[in-house]
Amino acid sequence: MSVLEIKNLHVNVETDQGTREILRGVDLVINEGEIHAVMGPNGSGKSTLAYTIAGHPKYQVVQGEILLDGENVLEMSVDARARAGLFLAMQYPVEIPGVTITNFLRTAKTAIDGEAPAIRGWVKDVRESMSALKMDSAFAERNVNEGFSGGEKKRNEILQLELLKPRFAVLDETDSGLDVDALKIVSEGVNRAKANTGLGILLITHYTRILRYITPDFVHVFVAGRIAEQGGPELADRLEDEGYDRYLEPAAK
């Protein structure tokens, strides 16, 4: 049974105005097969947590640990983390000119598995996943994210999730910018990936609407760089009614 542990994580970022502390002691344990929703207001540090797990160089860990089955993730390079089984579906996926989706997926799969996938099965897997995500097959020959709409970019992230089969995935606002139909398609993709591989999921979101399609086991309220409260799915309902004001007010006074 795999486990991703985040212990007392403090993260700084260098800004033009100097060093800023963004994460102020985050503790989180995700077991294989669990879905944890992290919800919080703009600027609370949700993406910072996601990027820090993936190893983005802009974020400096000043204290704390991230462990994957006891292994120190913080010592691994970005690519090594992915090969160890971590996946980040990005809030703003980047365009990669000159690299087709087909080429990119095969290269990533080869890197993660340590060997090239058997061609027949792979082509079939790609085709099936694309069609399940209602991505036109023409996307395969397009450059990664280049000229994609916001919703198409998010589908492309979930396509990778399905094909690369990580042990833990962080989904950073995969729901934002999606209309209801797209939200359903993407949510089904996530649920399918979980059913197939039993991965653990850290689902970062702003709104509760995606939680209608992806049911979390735990909900964490993220405020000002740390977890302010946690509970079961019922906590999400309460956030829906009350918003984050309750958590913000003491800080404002």
Partner: peptide, 8 residues
């Protein structure tokens, strides 16, 4: 970063 985050 994007490519490396996919193991490359």
């Amino acid at each position: 970063f994007y490519l490396m985050a996919r193991g490359i």
